[in-house]
Design a protein around this nucleic acid. Structure first.
Length: 593
DNA sequence: GCCGTTTTCGGCCCGACTGTTTTCAGTCG
């Protein structure tokens, strides 16, 4: 039937199959296998449909012959027989019930079997009538907590998440406040997804060492950011911030700091994979230490480095701990050199902020920015950059911020003047040109040819279908005067979904034509995201990280773009604007060199 | 359902918490 399907559709099917199998009482490992496969498919840099047609989907971790067959059946018939069978057997409303806290598949099944509960509404009715407590193994407290959760709308509304800058700001404020109150010898670290520099986080994990644990735990309640504290003891404290985020403070003995930090930095999947691999070597990892079957002893670690070293692994940077191949890459292989054997891992040496030598996307008062060309140039120079491109919006941008062709010609002249008048930084004349719905650009080619640097971005008609959007963007990629594609998926984290575009196809076209793809560093965007940026680099496309600054202070958002690049396994070599302008030029497409 | 210094069957991470229990199942991160 369907020639092809996006990876997301295949992943959704596996996700649903996992949920249905779980509710049907399948063993947990089969359920986990479906969920792992769904994640692999969703994050894959290539078309899984095409891969399966070629019989090569089994090359991916977690996809075996059975699942490849199911993909092919889904492509050919539009469905999977097992899914149809399970849908008929398991009420679909039960999946929503398992989203409630304290309600997993077993209890959902139990409630369905005993009380006929098959939806959130039926659950509410049964709870209000006091029937939940009549089920063996459940009681009045359970019933009350279910009603409370339904009351609060849990399961309907997703939990609030903080964007990374706000999360780190909150985490830092809490850590500083605690350090102050904990007295000498207190050291508080941020762990969890904030430390891994995820796009957004739903709770803040803090790990502390201190001489006065009880005092430190109690002092959490005294911090201005904290709304309430549920528990506090010598092991730590749990609370909530005024912004609705859970705060988890754990207090470690200095000798176990490494174990606790490693455990609470996660991710959960990284830790699960780490422990599974360790078991094969007779070691058992927990937040308290590493237990060795052979000696029957537990070793504690003051640092994370020691934890990884005990397992025969190189140190893995927090940004890489997502179970995306980092464990295999961290295996220490003894590579013989001509003199000696040295331990060596395949982990990348990740890019860092000081590697960035220039910023190629920013705005001035000519469009919707807040500062002049000169102010922006000086601010870029203060960051130590060697070059900056002024890239205001183009002729059709709208919002009163559009730049007509005549205005752009004058802007180019002004950029030349500023460049001549300021030492120590090269100021480039550029533009962020709209990609119109038909794939054309909104300046004539002869004008674009006068620019040093052209970014093409989509700012209108976000909702067109995947095929049309992909054609539209590839037309811009293939334009000989386009240097880079700005914020390629258009997502706004926690606010707007990416538009439908075939990323493997776009990435492939970018690599083929030498068009660069941007990691827009604005923390609301971080677009390309980590998955796409990694795939793009692997496909041979050049990556450029830009601030998209609309004011002088916004050059500082570069760090969030670098964080995304690190999560994408990128080295300085993988990112074009870590080079001097002369060396950068060699990476540009032939028509732009 | 996947996968292999336990290779084609029999395993497949670790610990805390909660509520309901006389020893633990289910859920969660």
């Amino acid at each position: 039937m369907a020639e092809t399907l996006p990876n997301s559709a295949i992943a959704d099917a596996f996700e649903e199959l996992g949920d249905l199998y779980e509710l049907d009482g399948a063993i947990v490992h089969r359920v986990l296998a479906y969920r792992a496969a769904a994640r692999t498919v969703r994050e894959a840099p290539v078309s899984i449909a095409e891969l399966a047609r070629a019989g090569r989907a089994t090359e991916l971790a977690g996809i075996g012959d059975t699942l490849q067959e199911k993909i092919l059946t889904l492509l050919d018939t539009g469905t999977i027989p097992a899914m149809e069978k399970l849908r008929a057997k398991v009420p679909p409303g039960l999946i929503a019930i398992t989203r409630l806290p304290g309600l997993g598949p077993k209890r959902a099944r139990l409630l369905h079997a005993e009380l006929g509960v098959d939806s959130l509404d039926a659950l509410r009715e049964a709870a209000l009538a006091g029937r939940l407590r009549t089920v063996k193994g459940l009681g009045a407290k359970f019933e009350a907590s279910v009603l409370d959760a339904l009351e609060r709308g849990v399961g309907e509304r997703p939990a609030p998440r903080l964007l990374l800058p706000r999360a780190l700001e909150l985490g830092r404020a809490l850590a500083d406040g605690l350090s102050e109150r904990g007295g000498a010898g207190t050291d508080v670290r941020i762990a969890g997804s904030a430390r891994r520099m995820a796009d957004s986080v739903k709770d803040i994990d803090l790990i502390a060492v201190t001489r006065k644990p009880v005092t430190l735990a109690k002092s959490l309640a005294a911090l201005g950011e904290i709304e309430s504290v549920a528990s506090a003891g010598r092991a730590g404290a749990k609370g909530r911030s005024h912004s609705g985020v859970s705060i988890d403070l754990r207090i470690a003995k200095p000798s176990q700091l490494g174990n606790l930090l490693q455990h609470f930095t996660g991710s959960g999947k990284h830790n699960a994979a780490l422990r599974e691999a360790a078991v094969r070597g007779g070691l058992h990892v927990s937040e308290y230490g590493v237990y060795d079957d052979a000696g029957g002893t537990t070793t504690t670690c003051a640092s994370e480095q020691e934890v990884y070293a005990l397992l025969g692994l190189a140190y893995i940077e927090p940004e890489l701990r997502e179970d995306r191949g980092e464990l295999a890459a961290a295996s220490l292989l003894s590579r013989p050199t001509h003199r000696t054997h040295s331990a060596h891992s395949a982990l990348p040496e990740l890019i860092a902020l000081p590697d960035i030598r220039g910023d190629l996307h920013c705005h001035t008062v000519a469009s919707d920015g807040r500062n002049t060309i000169e102010e922006m140039a000086l601010a870029a120079r203060e960051r130590g950059y060697e070059y900056v491109a002024i890239t205001d919006h183009s002729a059709s941008h709208g919002f009163g911020d559009d730049v007509s062709p005549e205005q752009l010609r004058r802007q180019i002249e002004r950029v030349r003047e500023v460049d001549a008048s300021i030492d120590g930084i090269m100021v480039l004349a550029g533009s962020e040109v709209n990609i119109l719905p038909d794939g054309s650009l909104d300046y004539e080619d002869d004008l674009l040819a006068e620019l040093d640097w052209v970014i093409a971005s989509v700012h209108t008609a976000f909702t067109m279908g995947e095929e049309a959007m992909t054609e539209r963007m590839i037309a811009a990629v293939e334009h000989p005067l386009v240097d880079a594609i700005g914020h390629p998926t258009g997502r706004l984290i926690e606010r707007r979904e990416p538009y439908a575009v075939d990323m493997p196809a776009l990435t492939c076209a970018a690599a083929r034509t030498g068009t660069m793809l941007e990691i827009n560093a604005n923390p609301d965007r971080r677009d390309l995201n980590d998955i796409h940026a990694r795939a793009a680099a692997q496909a041979g496309a050049s990556i450029v990280i830009d601030s998209d600054a609309h004011g002088v202070e916004r050059f500082d958002v570069m760090r969030w773009g670098v964080a995304t690049a690190r999560r994408a396994w990128l080295t300085a070599e993988d990112v074009a604007n870590t080079r001097s302008w002369e060396r950068f030029a060699k990476l540009r497409k032939q028509t732009r060199q």
